[in-house]
Each structure stands twice: as C-alpha cells, then as structure tokens.
Design a protein around this nucleic acid. Structure first.
Lengths: 126, 126
DNA sequence: TTGCGTTATTGTTAAATGAACATAACGAGG
DNA sequence: CCTCGTTATGTTCATTTAACAATAACGCAA
C-alpha cells in the first residue's frame, strides 16, 4: 500500500491559563447563534451536552468574560444566547483563522510541497 | 486574581496517515545531528530513549522514507545519523515554521490584540 | 399543580497517552 | 573472550483525557 498524500495539519488557539478558546468553542458558538440552545448546538456537532457545557465553562473561566447568556426554565425549557463580547470574539477569531489558513497553505506550497512530492516511497518493513 | 494575558498558541505538523512529523521529531533530529546518537539526543531533551525511538519509528513509517541511518554495535556502541532526506526535511520544515510564526504573530496583532486588551475582566464565580 | 425541555452539575467508566523498567542484539577494541 | 554504549523491543503501571450516565433545578404554559 503506497503512502498516503502528505498534507499539513494545524491547531490554533487563544491561550490564557492554558488553552482558552479554539475551533471547538468557536463552532459551538456558531451552533448556539443558529439554534439558540447549547444542547441543540452540541447535538448537531455530534458532541455530548456534558462536553459542550464543560468546554464553554472553561473558556469563560479562562478568558474572564462570559460568552453566552443562559436562561433556565420557561415554556421552551430555556435558551442560550451569545453575549456582545462573544459575538466580537467570534468575528475577530474567524478573521484571524481565515488569514492563518491562507498563510499556511502558501507557506506549505512554497516550502514543502515540492519536497514531499519528490520523495520516492520506500517500503519500511515491520 | 486577575486573568493572565491572552496570547496565541499553535501546533503545526505534517500529516500522512495521521500526524507524521512535527516539532518533537524536529527537535530530536536536531539533537541527533548535534550528538550523533538518538540516546543522547533524547537525554538532552529530558525524554526517555524508549519514547524518542518510538517517535522516529512512527515518523518514518508514516512518511514512507527513513530519517536516520542506524548503526548497532562497535566500539562506541553505535550511532544515529541523519539521512539526506532527513536533512532536506529539517531544512524545509524549519523554514516553513519560521514563516508561519511570523504570519501568526502578525495576524494576531492585527485581528485580536486590540479586542482582548479591551475586554474588562469580570470575576466569574464557581 | 403538573409536564416539558432546557441549563447545571456530579459521578463513573473506558480509552488513550505517557512513564518506568527490563532485556536482548550488536560489534569494534582491549 | 569480554566489555561497553548504543539500537531495538516488550511489558507493566500510572496518569491524563474522553465518553457515558444520572440527577437536580428552573419557570412558563396548559
């Protein structure tokens, strides 16, 4: 079996007392903005509510400001709603990541693409 | 206790059948180039030989070409030596990461620096 | 007052990861 | 033949992380 294509992978996050905000929380906030509910946002991502709840809890703790406004009870059961700060963060983080993606694609093509393609595949046993 | 400064963190790696090469292997190769021995390179990084050996083994398996030439036995016990392909990879990967670091620093300053500084710190209890 | 769906919170269990230890093979030189 | 330092590899234990389960609290509407 020949070796699969070599590509580049990366993760990028905001750090404050450790990892404070990254792609996971960002996608969760997008889901909440769309559905109005943390539970539904988690479900759509195939993530347990338990995990989604813990993720946002940690983010807010480390960032030092709230990302979602919670409402418990009521006819609909409750809801979650992105705070103004949360919206700002989503906007800036989104733009930030878009730029980085372009830079990484460019740098990969410039520095590594030709090299990895030039490597002849050797079978390494065991 | 006020919230610590918000910075950006990231990891970047070459992917082929999963993570195939990143900063850890890169530092190991640097140590081998310097010392001529995988064992000494691992020791200098505070890493067990067992782990260092496994890391490079996986890298070579996934990349599909060898990174170090091994010699077992002899008066010195043996040695490890970077292959030509390994040297090429180190060079290109190093340049690649240097570029990315600059891009990320620029993009962070441009998109997020002002925002994170503007956030008033609120104490979130529990 | 009861039901419903959501948020909030705590355990419990399983899986992945890493650390520590042990042992074998090798081969040049004394 | 024996020593020595390295590569090679398996095994066991501890730690961390992720997944899963269960339960409480809330508040509007019927």
């Amino acid at each position: 079996m020949p070796r699969s294509q070599v590509t580049v992978g990366y993760k990028i996050w905001l750090s404050a007392d450790g990892k404070a905000f990254g792609e996971g929380p960002y996608l969760l906030l997008q889901g909440i903005a769309k559905t109005g509910s943390l539970r539904q946002a988690a479900r759509e991502m195939g993530m347990s509510y338990r995990k989604a709840w813990g993720i946002l809890r940690e983010c807010e703790k480390k960032l030092g400001f709230t990302l979602i406004e919670r409402k418990v009870g009521g006819s609909s059961g409750g809801y979650s709603k992105i705070t103004p700060s949360g919206h700002e963060l989503m906007k800036h983080y989104g733009q930030f990541c878009d730029e980085i993606k372009k830079s990484i694609d460019n740098a990969f093509h410039k520095n590594l693409d030709a090299f990895v393609k030039s490597q002849k595949i050797r079978h390494i046993h065991k």
